[in-house]
Write a protein that binds this DNA or RNA. Structure first.
Lengths: 196, 196, 196, 196
DNA sequence: CATGAATGAGGATTCATTCAT
DNA sequence: GATGAATGAATCCTCATTCAT
């Protein structure tokens, strides 16, 4: 029963993601979501009280997927540098291989929906709080330069997002070497005493 | 006459920008643009054949504003590093002080509109071509690391965009010192032989 | 078993009345009736084949309640005038103390539902047939003026309904003296040879 | 221009009245009003922001029609009794000959719409305030019995309404003699010192 | 050039009803 | 009997666009 519910919501989420990537929020009517999900319009309203709530729940669903992918099974025994590189690597990989989620998240952050969410959840963008924590740890332990952690996070995430977008938009085959170079750039720029 | 035309278009552009930042593309009907611009709906259709074209022209209008601001009067006699830093500084300043344009551009890039534009104009994001040229020059002249220029551009622009967004979203007073640190990061990471 | 059935129908009736007074026929979906009655929607459809039938049965349920209240235990040994006054008194008291039924009946009579019912049951309004009979008796026995009995009934019932509505709408505490005055008016106007 | 506006609103009002008498508020979709009025749905929304407001404005439109009909050109030189009879006569005539308005008003008063209106305008029913004033005058000048004016108004209006409804529902040819008898009833009941 | 009334396709949402469990 | 998930027709309303003045 509970499985069924989860399955149906999941099903609606997945098809909504595809449609939104293709046509945007407003190019995606509920009727189309219903058709793709192979349910009646009314059924969607059985699970979500409104389109807005559907979008908002979808946002949380995606956020969780991202976090799980990035922060789960992060070996604590490797050096901070390795972790830094691994996290960056994972964000980027996730974005590139989950283009429907990536596209949705970017649209979401740049839409009025985000304001709604943002009111409750400060530090919203890309659940930066997890990233903030991770980078703050690096600063505290002298792995990273002692600067405003928000600023550092901007460099960290913005670089990954922009790179992913560039790959996806140019519809260019993703070359792992480029990602490795990018990681070098961001590590070189962020690490402690790189001025010596 | 020509001035009048430019003025009226300009007027429509400005009010559209404000409305779109506030309410998004689809929360901004033509009727509202008309009301804010103090003209009749029909008048807008006198200047633009459709809403889509209005948006597309607005995009080009903004693009030009940005380029003018960033690349005009760029003293050729200063060192590449200074120019690198200046360009980064200018992008970020522009974004922060022109939030309606910044918001519009971000919405645009993450909307289906961009696809339309993108078909004609390759290398679309943030008119990366100018930035691409600028960074390519740095690579060619051994100021920057010899890596894929698109990748480098991602780091350059993504960092600025993300930082600007962080300032604007957190509604935090912008601290120039943080921007200076950010510039250090991106320069340290990008410059040639920083591994020596 | 039969008790159970009656109880469940009764329960549904009562909650429907409250909801309809509050929100009207069309502001009262089956789902809400179900929720208030603490049963599933399907259960309602077990007892009533459709919403229309539910409403129609509810109408008959109310009609019977009203008649029982008004005409049962009507002492035949008192004078016609006393009976006339008592009946008027009872209608009004009933309306005022059973506002959910009163409101439902008034909505019903002024809705297209009534047409449906009316086709089968002529003389529908307020089950005027009982009142018609009662007043016809007064006419026949020279207690009341010899005029069209429908016209007389209009004066009789319309006055009571309008008075009740006035009390209920103004949300004014009901003053029995006013009702007594009203009864004087209607009796003075209706009784035989009041012109002498 | 102003005439056109008034004409279009008037046109919408008239067709709405017919439809509502036929099918009730909720059996009358905007699309049908549009079709009957020979305009597009959007046009209705050009004149009225919502269905609710259309209904509310229609209510005021009807109220005014009724008042004009009843209280305009009321010869001040005739006796109070004559005026009393004339006003009663006019209400009833109006109801019977304007069945679409009458039906609308009755539905309105017994619907949740009325609550909305009622909040602003106390003494709402049948714009009783005008009737209240008229009857209060009769009480003050010793033409009518000294009782609560609301109670008196209930008898006055309720009787007329009920009579009109009886005519209209029974689809019986209206016999003016019955109305004259009714007027006798109500006058006999209401006039001063009728007990002597 | 400018206006804004008119259009109607299209979208979000509701709700009476069904039916498998 | 009882449940409530599923259905989809029907409703209200929006808004890009047109065109007569």
């Amino acid at each position: 029963m509970n499985v069924q519910l989860k399955d149906k919501k999941e099903c609606i989420f997945q098809h909504t993601l595809v449609l939104i990537k293709e046509n945007g929020f407003h190019g995606t009517p509920m009727s189309q979501i219903a058709k793709q999900s192979d349910v009646a319009v009314g059924t969607i309203y059985h699970y979500f009280p409104s389109k807005e709530v559907l979008i908002l729940e979808l946002y949380n669903y995606c956020k969780n997927k991202i976090h799980q992918y990035i922060f789960e099974n992060l070996d604590e025994n490797i050096s901070y540098q390795k972790k830094f590189e691994l996290v960056f690597y994972r964000i980027t990989e996730f974005n590139i291989h989950n283009d429907v989620i990536f596209s949705f998240m970017e649209q979401f952050y740049n839409s009025p929906y985000f304001e709604l969410e943002h009111c409750n959840n400060r530090d919203g963008i890309y659940e930066q709080n997890h990233f903030l924590d991770f980078l703050q740890e690096g600063i505290n332990n002298n792995h990273l330069r002692k600067i405003d952690v928000y600023t550092l996070t901007s460099a960290f995430i913005g670089t990954s997002v922009s790179f992913s977008k560039s790959i996806l938009n140019r519809r260019v085959e993703y070359d792992e070497n480029n990602l490795k170079e990018l990681i070098k750039i961001i590590w070189q720029g962020s690490k402690q005493n790189n001025e010596i």
